[in-house]
Structure formats: C-alpha cells, structure tokens
Amino acid sequence: MMELIHLAVPVLLKGLWVTAALTFVSVLIGSNLGLGLALMRLSSNRLLSGFAKYYSNVFRGTPLLVQIFLFYYGLGQLPLIKDNAALWWVISDGARCAVLALALNTAAYTSEILRGGLMSVPVGLVEAAQACGMSRTLRFRRIEFPLAIRQALPAYGNELILVVKGTSLASTITVLEITGYAKRLMSQTFAIFEIFAIAGVLYLVINLLLIAIIRSIERFLMRHETSSRRVAAAPSSAAS
C-alpha cells in the first residue's frame, strides 16, 4: 500500500498541475467570451442576439466529448485550417485543442448564467443611471455588471466545477492530466480502487478550493449587505 502511494501520488500530482492549467486558461478565455455572448444575446440587434442564441444552444446541446473530437480530429482536415499557421498551431496540439473546446463550451454556459444575472438588474436602477447622464459603458461598468455578477456568482461557481470535471476529457486526446495518469496507473498496477481514491481526492480538493474562492468573493461583494439582509430575513423566517 505504501509502495503504491509512493508510486501514484507524484504522478497524479504532476497531472494535477496540468488539470489546473487547463482549467485556468479555459476559464480565463471562456468567461470573457461568455460575457461577450451574453451582451450579444441581450442586444437589440437581431443578428447578434440570434447568433448568440444558436451558439449557446449548439454548444449546450452536444456532448463536450463530441466537440473535443470534432476539433482535434475533424478540423485538421479542412484546408482552410491546414493553411492557416495560427489555427493549425492551436489544433495540432492536444492540450491547446482541449483548451479551445473547453473555453468555447464554458462560454456558452457562462453566457446563459450572465444573461440571467443581467436580466435580474432592476430596470429602475438602469433608468436612474441614464437620468444621471451616465454613458452606456459607464452604466454597464458601474451599475449593471456589478449587480449582475452578484446574482450570477453562485451559479458560476457550479459552472467552474463542471469545467474542472470537463478537463478530464482532455485525456481522450492524448493530454496526460489527472484522469489520463489515473487510467494509465490503473492498467499498470491493477490497484484500481486505490488509484481512483487518490485521483478523486485531488479533484475534490480542487473543487473545495474553488468553492472557497467563490464564497469569499461573494462575501466580499456582499459585504455592505450582510447586516441589512439579516434584519430583512429575520421577520420572514419567524412568520413561516
């Protein structure tokens, strides 16, 4: 048993960094794309909102595995991509391709979450900002986005965990991250349950860490509301 831990833990920790890197880069790209898509979806331009709607339906309606395979194996066939050096650079490597698929996939889910948040911003507040003469971008930066992100944060935390779990699919296109190493170790050592337990603990640690980060951001954003909320919540809970 100790031997196995000595053998498996360093290997899986190596995978942990790959998983963390895949998650970080995909979330970085995906959150920005998602914000853009959410804004497109809410714009009055029919073309923009239509594109964002179809984009999110297509990416949320197909399995991530299909998207990863389509990008990794499929796109390389198209002459358009073969001849473009930059696109070929992205497609030719498993890790870069996985990041591309994960980022585009999480962008679709993020756009839905942010759209919900933006739609929950009371119209009166936006009108008040307009009446104060705020420009469109200032209004978005100071009023709409901060309120929307407070609303959307808990759901976005769940989405982050889905991205962490999604990085495991990168192992199907030759990227060795936690799941990839775990599979290899399982077939080498036959200590299937032990390897699963160690890999599972690593994933649970990442997820708990992410939840803790999201919670602390939430507490930071809501810092001025905690006391008033508690007062507002008390009578209603007493009534029920």
Binding site: I161, V164, K165, G166, T167, S168, L169, S171, T172, I178, T179, A182, K183, M186, S187, F190, I192, F193, F196, A199, G200, Y203, L204, N207
Partner: peptide
C-alpha cells in the same frame, strides 16, 4: 452525492469498468 458530483464522470466510468472487468 458530493463524491459523484465532484469527481469527473470519466474517472467513475474507468473505476467501474476496470474494477469489474477482471
């Protein structure tokens, strides 16, 4: 629920498949 929802589906499938194959 916290185990299954926190661990990738692929890893769970590998666990069930490899452990039962033999």
């Amino acid at each position: 629920t916290s185990l299954v929802r926190g661990v990738p589906e692929l890893l769970i499938i590998y666990l069930l498949f490899f452990s039962s194959v033999e």
